[in-house]
């Protein structure tokens, strides 16, 4: 299963090693890691909680992977997304893509994270000095999809 929704942290080098081991066709691995930053929409964030829609989340991520595979000459895609309580500097998400050459790996990796951000049912709730608040979706995330159409 190339999609993992989990509360536990992940180790980038372990995951990449697993992803490409036994596949001698691989000449490139591109990876994106999203992390919790302390500043969002003008407020200092101390922690956050991630909610998701079990069942739909997995399905939507698998569909995004299938679309990326149909579009680029890539071998494997791995998505790990954490849920539950997270703190500043924690890792949230990993997208890793293997291919023969870097161009396809970079492009497919960006495509997957762009689609994940607008289609996969995850929601962040931040803790700030003024209490907790749901994060608003960004227009820039919708804009990011336009370059793939």
């Amino acid at each position: 299963m190339p999609v993992h929704i989990q509360t536990e942290d992940f180790d980038l080098s372990t995951e990449i090693k697993k992803l490409r081991s036994g596949d001698a066709r691989v000449g490139a691995v591109a990876a994106f890691v999203g992390t919790v930053r302390e500043q969002n929409d003008g407020a200092k964030v101390s922690a956050m909680t991630l909610e998701h829609y079990p069942g739909m989340t997995e399905k939507s991520l698998e569909e995004i992977i299938q679309k990326a595979k149909a579009r680029w000459d890539i071998f494997d895609v791995l998505i790990i997304h954490r849920v539950g309580p997270l703190h500043i500097e924690d890792q949230i998400v990993l997208v890793a893509v293997t291919s023969a050459h870097r161009g396809e790996a970079f492009a497919a990796c960006e495509y997957v994270i762009d689609y994940l951000k607008t289609l996969a049912p995850f929601w962040k709730k931040e803790d700030t000095a003024d209490g907790s608040r749901w994060v608003d979706a960004r227009l820039s995330d919708d804009e990011a999809l336009k370059k793939w159409n």
């Binding site: 829609y53 997304h81 949230i92 951000k117 995850f122 929601w123 979706a137 960004r138």
Partner: peptide, 10 residues
């Protein structure tokens, strides 16, 4: 059927 706000993962 599900209703939810625009997603904010990643």
């Amino acid at each position: 059927v599900a209703f939810f706000p625009p997603v904010t993962g990643g």
